[in-house]
Design a protein around this nucleic acid. Structure first.
Length: 480
RNA sequence: GCCCCCUUCGUCUAGUGGCCUAGGACAUCUCCCUUUCACGGAGGAAACAGGGAUUCGAAUUCCCUAGGGGGUGCCA
């Protein structure tokens, strides 16, 4: 294959959607795998709905995921500009060209007239197909419309025929183009419609493979017709299944987070997220699901992508994310956790101890933001006890005795040596026999952390240090 | 309505005519590890949408039906 050129073409009418992100991923992988180029194009022809903040979000999210583009906004190439709003001249020029060689024509029908015809079609339960009223309009009539101040659209004259294209994922797909009406390519405000702009840009940017969501299958024949009318080489098409919500419908806002940035914000690691997205519709031939982007690129085959839509399975995402949290270098994870520990006084602990804290907590969180709550007992000195904790850990005659003896033990511990703590604590438990371990550990844990569950107790003691441990125990004893 | 796409455990999927008594992963259940919660380890339950046809033989090929999704815009 000669250097393929692929693109992701989001429109900035919302934050980067996970579906778009996955399509971007597949395009990126395909480009890297075949030493091609991955291009980003912003489709902001809908000036009403496009927003700069969304555009920025698209850039940030793509970068966060590690999907950097070879050409696009901020990375100039010879095919720019890469924002459709900066390419408007081009579209009208091409549209004119189509008019001149008979492939397109001006349409003066008003929106109201069209709406009426659509209504009739609806009532007859048939498809609305534009009736070509303006195809052969008299000069007179035309002049009349112009005098009325009507602004025309430009419609593409759809050639009627059987059209077949070979989808790289689905193989042969057939359409009867007589069923599609002459669609608008230039709106009356002289901006291009989606179907026209994509084709002009994909041609202009030498796009060789169009890899996109299956919601675009029915646009494909229209686009192919345009390529043919323009006398340009039709690219290869590959339509990937969509990402679905748990109820199998299109994943949307009402299902919760849909933007990549929301997931990143919550503490999903970009590496894990990418890994997860790749698994939606694709599976590694060796069955080993946890893979870096580089490994995925090596094994990826476009025609192995599944045809069907895939439910966004958050449980699995959580599992993968937890796995990455536990397996990435501790320094790295510690650094990334800091964002979620902003409200705590981190200077309370040395860097080493902070790492120890994270090494304990990373075992039991699935997303980074959970570290805030999990770390609370190390930073908040005021420990409170819920009824549940009181009932399950701090009730019984043994409690006071255990805590007092534990206090004595703290005098013998080397608080700079976690192993020493672990060792002596073990002996302490033995010395308290026949009292069951549970009745020793739970009062200490509860007093120290206010929790029933959590990190390894001797680690907690080591992390807190002597002063904290002693004061917390005393504080509680004084309330008895 | 019409057009197009899709259909294997709850979920993501492997499977391209015999290797399938359908494999893996997540979730779930049981057990082990263990002072708790996790982590980790072992094991279990769980699916070829339905019906025809082709074939010695079908999850795999063809047809029909059903279900789901998408499109049917001067949105992208």
């Amino acid at each position: 294959m000669t250097q393929p050129r692929v693109r992701i073409a989001p429109s900035p009418t919302g934050n980067l959607h996970v579906g778009t992100a996955r399509t971007a991923l597949f395009n990126y992988i395909f480009a890297k795998k075949n030493s091609g180029k991955f291009i980003l194009r912003i489709e902001d022809t809908d000036l009403e709905r496009s927003q700069n903040s969304y555009e920025q979000n698209i850039y940030d999210s793509l970068k966060a995921l590690g999907l950097s583009w070879d050409e696009g906004p901020g990375v100039d190439g010879k095919y720019g500009p890469y924002k459709q709003s900066e390419r408007f001249d081009l579209y009208s020029k091409k549209a004119e060209e189509l008019i001149n060689n008979g492939h397109a024509y001006y349409c003066y029908c008003s929106q109201e007239e069209l709406e009426q015809e659509k209504e009739i079609a609806r009532q007859q339960k048939s498809d609305f197909i534009y009736n070509r009223k303006c195809l052969e309009i008299s000069e007179e009539k035309k002049q009349q419309y112009i005098n009325e101040g009507r602004k025309p659209t430009i419609r593409f004259k759809v050639p009627h025929k059987e059209l077949t294209f070979n989808d790289l994922i689905r193989n042969e797909v057939k359409f009867d183009t007589s069923l599609t009406g002459d669609f608008v390519i230039m709106k009356s405000d002289n901006t291009p419609t989606y179907n026209f702009a994509v084709v002009i840009d994909d041609i202009g940017m030498d796009i060789t493979h169009v890899i996109r969501g299956e919601d675009h299958i029915s646009n494909t024949p229209k686009q192919i017709l345009l390529y043919e009318a323009l006398n340009c080489k039709v690219p290869e098409f590959a339509h990937v299944g969509m990402i679905l919500a748990t109820d199998k419908s299109k994943l949307s806002k009402r299902h919760g987070a849909t933007a990549v940035s929301e997931f990143v914000e919550q503490g999903y690691l970009p590496e894990a997220f990418v890994n997860f997205m790749a698994l939606l519709g694709w599976s590694p031939p060796d069955g080993e699901e946890i893979k870096s982007l580089d490994e995925i690129i090596k094994l990826f085959e476009l025609d192995k992508i599944s045809h069907a839509g895939a439910v966004f399975d958050k449980e699995k995402l959580n599992w993968i994310n937890g796995l990455y949290i536990r397996s990435l270098p501790l320094e790295d994870i510690t650094e990334r956790c800091k964002k979620y520990l902003k409200n705590y006084d981190l200077s309370k602990y040395s860097d080493e101890k902070l790492k120890t804290i994270i090494s304990e907590l990373r075992e039991r969180i699935t997303i980074l933001s959970e570290v805030t709550e999990a770390a609370a007992c190390f930073f908040n000195d005021a420990i409170t006890f819920s009824d549940e904790v009181k009932e399950n850990a701090l009730t019984g005659d043994h409690v006071k005795d255990v805590l007092k003896k534990f206090l004595e033990l703290t005098e013998q511990l080397d608080f700079n040596n976690s192993e020493d703590i672990e060792e002596k604590f073990k002996e302490f438990r033995k010395s308290m026999k026949p009292l069951k371990p549970k009745f020793i550990m739970m009062p200490v844990r509860a007093t120290l952390t206010g929790q029933l569950h959590g990190a390894d107790l001797s680690s907690i003691i080591y992390i807190l240090g002597k002063d904290n441990v002693v004061s917390r125990i005393n504080k509680y004893l004084n309330t008895l």
